[in-house]
Design a binder for these strands. Structure first.
Length: 121
DNA sequence: AGCGTGACGAGTA
DNA sequence: ATACTCGCCACGC
């Protein structure tokens, strides 16, 4: 009897890795979907996005953002609340018009996976 | 088997 | 700044 169906009671290893990376992103910092995929050296931004969409609820999903710094549709305010609470560098539009929510300042918030913990900076 | 869709990315107009 | 196209990979119909 060959098991033709893969196990479903555990998350796919790829998903587990993606969640692990998302979970190790320090507060006040963010990683793009593409960066996570690149950091894992496997899959692509879309694949990471899929994992986050399915299992992101188990990790600080707001720390995984799009490359253009746009907030997640439908969770903009939720994510924004976390960003302000964590001190994530935001780039507020000069023209703070309604409907024009601030974007993440990727240049400052982007984290490349270098924790530098234990070191002495 | 093909086709459309998506929590994407980068390039070009 | 926005809009559109192409490339990418996995899933559902």
């Amino acid at each position: 009897m060959s098991e033709q169906s893969p196990p479903a009671d555990v998350l796919p290893e790829y998903a587990e890795r993606v969640l692990d990376v998302a979970d190790r992103i320090p507060p006040g910092r963010v990683m793009t979907y593409g960066d996570v995929a690149e950091w894992l050296e496997d899959g692509g931004p879309r694949q990471v996005g899929r994992v986050m969409a399915l299992y992101g609820g188990a990790v600080p999903w707001w720390r995984v953002v799009r490359a253009d710094g746009a907030l997640l549709p439908g969770h903009e305010l939720g994510a924004l609340d976390h960003y302000r609470a964590e001190g994530t560098p935001l780039k507020e539009a000069s023209r703070a018009a309604e409907g024009h929510l601030p974007r993440i300042d990727m240049r400052r918030a982007r984290w490349d996976g270098d924790d530098r913990t234990g070191g002495h900076t």
